[in-house]
Nucleic acid binder design. Structure first.
Lengths: 236, 236
DNA sequence: GATTTTTATCTTGTATACATATTGCATACT
DNA sequence: AGTATGCAATATGTATACAAGATAAAAATC
């Protein structure tokens, strides 16, 4: 009986994490204690503890006397993200290449297989979550107490950014994902070979690819209309 | 009445943070809910929420059904620390120099004054806490969501390492602190001038100084005894 | 009619009581 | 004597009840 409620608490934790990362819960969205309490058959006490923990990990924000909401994404988010990500992830992969243990490499391979499967047949959310798992394992390999907190925080918004800036119809975006998958393979190879310099370089490349995907979204290829076809009817 | 208990909760939070950073609570030490509950006149419910939050920020570790303990310091801690610290703090100071606002610079100056006062007359704990405050303000200036979590985590152990590896009698350690204070002044100047390259370099220098202090502690100057004076009575 | 004040309702925060898990000690057994 | 087992004591986790704050709606005032 106690075992069951402990499992529900863990389920709630995983559920909320997934919902935040896949945008099923939107940035800035309010969370209702009462509703979640009923859905997961938990009293408010353990629920609120889960909120605190998720706030500590960067998924939620707590406001005094005003409940919890999903961490926001502002117009400075992308800039902050791409400033920090290459540096942190470069360090993570460098350390991963130096420290990875055989069973961790096995897990990384399994995660990459899952990622490839999600590319073929999964939803956007499947893709985002399996990609997150891949990177989380590299974080385990690096095993540095002081880098992990920022890295985990980056992975949350990496998933959210990936969900935001992606259109499945776009052919160049599909090609982008194939390239990402090839980079994952190269990362596995570099880690297995213990080549930390190569791993660090692959981190940079991987983020440049992410940035490129956003550019494809924000500034798509032109519609190939002749000059002047968009002339205004009203003066500027 | 409610106001008072909210203040007590905040007091508990600050108190625990300070105790962890000044080693009044040792790494690995167990915390007793019942005792703290009485001391701060709070019920266990809000107390446990504070524990969760502090665990999220890296001060404590929570074990299922086995209570909270202060985050441990292992033999790999120092290595992990000096791997991550220069990179993170370099980035923080670089961004601080780019983004600092006038009122933040004022606060940084005030923090440095407090640090100098602690150097002259304060306890080791005063020194550690005022130094932490100085660096926390540079973190505010940098204002990057993704770097902050690791930076905060570093500051916790920066304080604890400073408390561990310091002997007030040692003259070269005192000189070391004066040099640290001069570096703080230089950091303020670089930030005010918006010179991000200089600020990043000062971050590296500042950590090299910290590392030097540990070396002074671990490998002190010899006692100047003549060779052979420590000859063993038993064979090796 | 618009704005402010009051009141009702809902949400959040805390305390207490109870259920479950862990730990240490005493006793029994090999 | 040393180890195993069971029980008591202690500590942790959860649920419910109550208190305080926030929000929204209705009434009163200008």
């Amino acid at each position: 009986m106690k075992d069951a409620s402990r499992r529900r608490k863990q389920q709630l934790l995983d559920h909320l994490k997934t919902c935040v990362m896949t945008l099923r819960l939107q940035p800035g969205e309010d969370l209702d204690e009462a509703t979640l309490s009923q859905e997961f058959e938990l009293s408010r006490t353990p629920l609120r503890e889960v909120f605190r923990q998720l706030a500590g990990e960067g998924y939620l924000e707590l406001r005094e006397n005003r409940g919890a909401r999903v961490s926001g994404m502002t117009y400075t988010t992308l800039r902050d993200f791409f400033l920090a990500a290459p540096m942190i992830y470069g360090a993570i992969l460098q350390l991963a290449a130096q420290n990875a243990k055989p069973d961790q490499i096995d897990r990384l391979r399994a995660a990459q297989d899952a990622f490839k499967a999600a590319l073929r047949s999964g939803s956007g959310a499947d893709r985002a979550m399996s990609n997150t798992l891949f990177h989380e394992i590299t974080g385990d390999m690096a095993d540095n107490t002081y880098l992990t907190p920022s890295f985990k925080r980056l992975l949350i918004d990496h998933a959210r950014i990936g969900m935001t800036f992606y259109r499945p119809q776009d052919a160049s975006m599909a090609e982008n994902l194939s390239e990402a998958s090839r980079q994952h393979d190269a990362i596995i190879a570099a880690i297995e070979a213990g080549d930390d310099a190569a791993a660090a370089q692959l981190a940079i490349d991987h983020w440049n690819l992410s940035r490129h995907q956003i550019e494809l979204f924000v500034a798509p290829a032109g519609l190939d209309l002749p000059l002047g076809s968009t002339a205004r009817k009203t003066p500027a």
